[in-house]
Every structure is written in structure tokens, then in C-alpha cells.
Amino acid sequence: MSRVPSPPPPAEMSSGPVAESWCYTQIKVVKFSYMWTINNFSFCREEMGEVIKSSTFSSGANDKLKWCLRVNPKGLDEESKDYLSLYLLLVSCPKSEVRAKFKFSILNAKGEETKAMESQRAYRFVQGKDWGFKKFIRRDFLLDEANGLLPDDKLTLFCEVSVVQDSVNISGQNTMNMVKVPECRLADELGGLWENSRFTDCCLCVAGQEFQAHKAILAARSPVFSAMFEHEMEESKKNRVEINDVEPEVFKEMMCFIYTGKAPNLDKMADDLLAAADKYALERLKVMCEDALCSNLSVENAAEILILADLHSADQLKTQAVDFINYHASDVLETSGWKSMVVSHPHLVAEAYRSLASAQCPFLGPPRKRLKQS
């Protein structure tokens, strides 16, 4: 649940008159999402009104509101027999009622949201009550392989729920002597030191190019640089560091992050930047690179990204790559990247197969709970 924001200063709310007192009302909304995959969808019983329910879910471990999704594969009634019906059901509720908006969509073979439908307002739910769409999607369109909505005969539904909580009022009075504290510009100011090479005390040599930097900042941000300058190493004695395995453009992006906490060109060089972040123990930059690479996972590059993640101990990226390969196994196994990995990294192939087997055979063990970014 997000923290209630402070109200904007009255002088910034309007260029008009300023009242002596004010009130700011925040209506709290808890948002969460749920993904439900139905394997072997074409084998569902086709009687009209037949119901399939998901397991229950909530916004978190401490949330007492429990929900589930309900599907009628062949419609709810005679009117909707040519459609799939989809509903959000409130299973248990400690209150007399709650209000919530919802959005349903289908994830296609690429994991993209399609055929989205959402409620136009927050509906009133009581325990045992459901709301949804009797005519969510035509069955003939859903079952047509050309539309790519049932890869490997799996129907994957994605649901986003927004639950309306209580409202909170914050009130106060205006004073004539309003003090406005300026925003912190530390990142910009440190970035200026790097860009202008002011007050530098060490030189970093990268592929024949020299960059002036500040030992204190490098040591504070990177345990690797800290070790170089702290001990009686040649880098500490000469205040000069030779860097041979990072390209200059990648190095500059890494230094921008060290000084400012930002990497504006990360998406263009996420793979190389991940390697640099791993070498210099820049954990936050490493996770930022993992996130960017996750966003660009595809059938063509899944094997290469899995190898990269394994090489640099990028655990979150590795998990996402394995899950992606499992979901698109029939396509990924035909790529040149996968065939190369079979020869060069057989242990990763074995890991992917083990994960695929456990996903398809849940009876082999208890269900695993899916539970950071600093």
C-alpha cells in the first residue's frame, strides 16, 4: 500500500486566492494483479454453464480479502454459449462490502496482453458476489490457432484489481511565511564533478583513453575500487588504474551511474553493462540491467540471455529466462542460440529441462510459493 502523499503547497495549487485553511483528501486504492494459466484448455468440458475456478489470491499475505477468477468455457447461458465468460469473485471478506475495479486480458504466445476488457467503474462486491463479462471473447476466435491465444493449448488470463480503501483527510492552515525547501541536487552536482573533471585525484585508463576521477567517490560506490585504493596496490601508489576489459562507451555509462545513480543509455548496452556491474560489484546497476534484459526477452535471444545471466550470477534474470524458455519451449528449441547452448553450456540445458519437467508435473513435489530491489 502506498504512503499517503503530503498535500501540495497551496501557493502551487492555483494562481488564484489562497485560503486560510485547507483539506486534502486521499482515497486510498490498493492495486494488484494475478495470472492464471489453464493447461490443455481444449479438453475443458463443453457443457453450457460449466465452471472452472482459479485458486484464491489477494494483494498480499496480510490481506484478508480473498478473490478468485471464474471461467465458463462455453458461456454462462444460452445467450453467451458462443463466448467464454469471465468473472472476478470475492471469496471471503471481513467487511460487509468492498468496491473494486478490474481489468481482464489474455496473454498471447509472446506474453503480450490482448483482448483487454475492464470495468468502467468500481463495482460493489459482497462475499460470494462476482462481476465480469458474460461475453468476454468469442470461442471461435479464441480457438483459432492463427490468433495465437492458446500457445501449446494453454489459456493464460491476466487480471488487474484495484480495491478502494478508506479515504484519509489531511488538513492544515496557511501561513504568510511559507518556506520552500529546494530539491536535493546531489546527483546532478556529483555528475558535474565527473563531467568537468574537477578536483580529480586519479586516472582511469580504458582502451587508450584516459578519464579523470575521484578516488573517494569510486571507493564509496564500488567495493572493488575501494579494495584497489585501500591496500598497497599499484593503483593506490600511482593513482592510476588500467581497465582492459570494458569498452570506453560502456565504461562511461558505468561511471555515470557511479556518480549519479542513473544510467540513461542502459537499454542500448544492458548486456555489456551487466558484465561491468558484476565485475565492479555495483549491485543496483546489475539489477537494473537484469530488468532491462528481462523486458527484451524473446524467442530468438532467450538462450543467449540465459548464458549471460549464468555467467554473471544474475539470479533474477536467470529465473526469468528459464521461465520464458519453459513457456515458449517449442519455439526456443528451434533457435540457433539454443542449439549452440546445447554444445557450449549443457548444464544450462539440463537446468531448463528440470524446470520444465517440474512445471508440467506438479505432483512430483509440493507447490512452490512464489514470493528486491534495493
Score class of each variant (00 low, 15 high):
residue 365 G to M: 15
residue 153 D to P: 12
residue 124 R to F: 09
residue 295 S to W: 09
residue 141 F to N: 02
residue 1 M to G: 00
residue 203 C to A: 14
residue 175 T to G: 08
residue 8 P to D: 04
residue 117 M to V: 09
residue 201 D to T: 14
residue 207 A to H: 15
residue 109 A to W: 07
residue 14 S to T: 10
residue 150 L to C: 00
residue 249 E to H: 05
residue 45 R to M: 04
residue 213 A to V: 11
residue 170 I to T: 01
residue 188 D to I: 06
residue 172 G to E: 02
residue 197 S to M: 13
residue 291 D to E: 07
residue 63 D to R: 10
residue 175 T to K: 03
residue 230 E to F: 06
residue 243 I to W: 09
residue 26 Q to S: 06
residue 296 N to R: 13
residue 60 G to V: 10
residue 191 G to C: 08
residue 93 C to Y: 06
residue 161 V to D: 00
residue 36 W to F: 02
residue 154 K to M: 11
residue 190 L to T: 08
residue 146 A to T: 13
residue 320 Q to T: 07
residue 173 Q to R: 02
residue 169 N to K: 02
residue 268 K to E: 01
residue 210 E to L: 12
residue 65 L to H: 05
residue 155 L to F: 03
residue 6 S to T: 11
residue 208 G to Q: 12
residue 351 E to Y: 02
residue 341 M to H: 01
residue 352 A to D: 01
residue 20 E to P: 12
residue 162 S to V: 05
residue 125 F to T: 00
residue 227 A to K: 03
residue 153 D to K: 11
residue 336 S to K: 15
residue 342 V to K: 14
residue 117 M to G: 08
residue 136 F to T: 10
residue 103 K to S: 15
residue 180 K to P: 08
residue 253 E to S: 00
residue 68 C to Q: 05
residue 327 Y to M: 03
residue 304 E to L: 05
residue 198 R to F: 15
residue 306 L to K: 00
residue 236 S to G: 01
residue 65 L to Q: 12
residue 193 L to E: 10
residue 173 Q to H: 05
residue 57 F to K: 00
residue 187 A to W: 12
residue 76 L to Y: 14
residue 72 N to H: 11
residue 86 L to M: 09
residue 104 F to V: 15
residue 70 R to M: 15
residue 205 C to Q: 15
residue 36 W to A: 07
residue 114 T to R: 07
residue 297 L to F: 10
residue 161 V to L: 14
residue 15 S to T: 13
residue 44 C to I: 04
residue 32 F to V: 03
residue 352 A to Q: 09
residue 178 M to W: 03
residue 280 Y to Q: 01
residue 303 A to D: 00
residue 323 D to H: 05
residue 101 K to I: 02
residue 30 V to C: 10
residue 83 Y to R: 05
residue 68 C to G: 11
residue 363 F to H: 14
residue 117 M to W: 09
residue 309 A to Q: 00
residue 98 V to I: 14
residue 46 E to D: 04
residue 374 S to W: 09
residue 73 P to I: 12
residue 346 P to G: 11
residue 180 K to I: 07
residue 293 L to Q: 08
residue 183 E to P: 08
residue 160 E to I: 07
residue 268 K to T: 01
residue 175 T to R: 05
residue 211 F to D: 03
residue 243 I to T: 02
residue 227 A to C: 12
residue 328 H to A: 13
residue 46 E to Q: 10
residue 163 V to T: 04
residue 183 E to T: 04
residue 346 P to L: 09
residue 209 Q to T: 12
residue 94 P to F: 11
residue 282 L to W: 00
residue 86 L to E: 01
residue 224 V to S: 15
residue 104 F to L: 12
residue 189 E to F: 07
residue 232 E to Y: 13
residue 285 L to V: 04
residue 127 Q to D: 13
residue 6 S to N: 04
residue 351 E to S: 03
residue 42 S to Y: 04
residue 316 Q to K: 11
residue 344 S to W: 08
residue 248 P to H: 05
residue 33 S to G: 10
residue 306 L to M: 03
residue 230 E to A: 14
residue 4 V to H: 06
residue 97 E to C: 14
residue 324 F to H: 12
residue 296 N to F: 11
residue 173 Q to P: 01
residue 374 S to C: 14
residue 187 A to T: 09
residue 95 K to Q: 10
residue 222 S to Y: 01
residue 358 S to M: 09
residue 27 I to T: 09
residue 60 G to Y: 11
residue 290 E to K: 04
residue 205 C to S: 12
residue 152 D to Q: 15
residue 167 S to L: 06
residue 355 S to W: 08
residue 110 K to P: 02
residue 155 L to W: 10
residue 359 A to S: 02
residue 24 Y to N: 11
residue 245 D to Q: 05
residue 60 G to T: 10
residue 283 E to H: 05
residue 16 G to T: 05
residue 253 E to Q: 09
residue 92 S to L: 14
residue 98 V to N: 10
residue 226 S to A: 15
residue 306 L to P: 01
residue 227 A to Q: 01
residue 51 V to H: 05
residue 25 T to Q: 05
residue 335 T to F: 00
residue 304 E to R: 08
residue 210 E to N: 13
residue 80 S to F: 10
residue 210 E to K: 12
residue 279 K to L: 04
residue 25 T to D: 00
residue 371 L to F: 10
residue 198 R to W: 13
residue 48 M to Q: 02
residue 268 K to F: 10
residue 335 T to G: 03
residue 35 M to P: 00
residue 368 R to G: 07
residue 48 M to A: 07
residue 114 T to W: 08
residue 364 L to V: 14
residue 101 K to M: 14
residue 319 T to E: 12
residue 316 Q to V: 11
residue 71 V to L: 13
residue 79 E to G: 11
residue 341 M to C: 09
residue 146 A to S: 05
residue 259 Y to L: 05
residue 355 S to M: 10
residue 316 Q to P: 08
residue 326 N to I: 10
residue 268 K to N: 01
residue 69 L to I: 07
residue 208 G to K: 15
residue 63 D to A: 11
residue 98 V to D: 09
residue 156 T to P: 13
residue 85 S to Q: 10
residue 318 K to R: 04
residue 52 I to M: 02
residue 115 K to R: 11
residue 287 V to Y: 07
residue 20 E to S: 09
residue 290 E to G: 05
residue 139 R to W: 03
residue 164 V to W: 05
residue 192 G to R: 02
residue 164 V to Q: 07
residue 317 L to P: 00
residue 91 V to E: 15
residue 125 F to P: 04
residue 75 G to S: 05
residue 100 A to M: 07
residue 204 L to M: 13
residue 367 P to E: 15
residue 136 F to M: 07
residue 7 P to L: 05
residue 366 P to S: 12
residue 290 E to I: 10
residue 305 I to V: 03
residue 278 D to G: 03
residue 352 A to W: 13
residue 278 D to K: 09
residue 54 S to K: 00
residue 204 L to F: 15
residue 38 I to G: 00
residue 309 A to K: 00
residue 94 P to N: 10
residue 10 P to L: 08
residue 63 D to T: 09
residue 85 S to D: 15
residue 162 S to E: 15
residue 145 E to C: 11
residue 231 H to Y: 08
residue 147 N to L: 05
residue 148 G to L: 04
residue 77 D to E: 07
residue 116 A to T: 03
residue 369 K to A: 02
residue 110 K to E: 09
residue 78 E to I: 06
residue 219 A to W: 13
residue 155 L to C: 12
residue 286 K to M: 06
residue 122 A to Y: 13
residue 262 K to H: 02
residue 204 L to Q: 11
residue 45 R to Q: 06
residue 273 L to H: 00
residue 304 E to K: 06
residue 223 P to F: 08
residue 158 F to Q: 14
residue 159 C to K: 00
residue 373 Q to T: 14
residue 192 G to A: 08
residue 271 D to E: 03
residue 92 S to M: 10
residue 222 S to C: 14
residue 159 C to T: 04
residue 286 K to N: 07
residue 305 I to F: 08
residue 251 F to L: 03
residue 234 E to Y: 15
residue 315 D to C: 10
residue 18 V to W: 09
residue 177 N to Y: 04
residue 211 F to Q: 15
residue 309 A to T: 10
residue 145 E to N: 03
residue 331 D to H: 12
residue 53 K to E: 06
residue 186 L to T: 09
residue 309 A to G: 05
residue 272 D to Y: 06
residue 251 F to V: 12
residue 320 Q to N: 08
residue 340 S to M: 08
residue 217 I to K: 00
residue 249 E to Y: 01
residue 2 S to V: 08
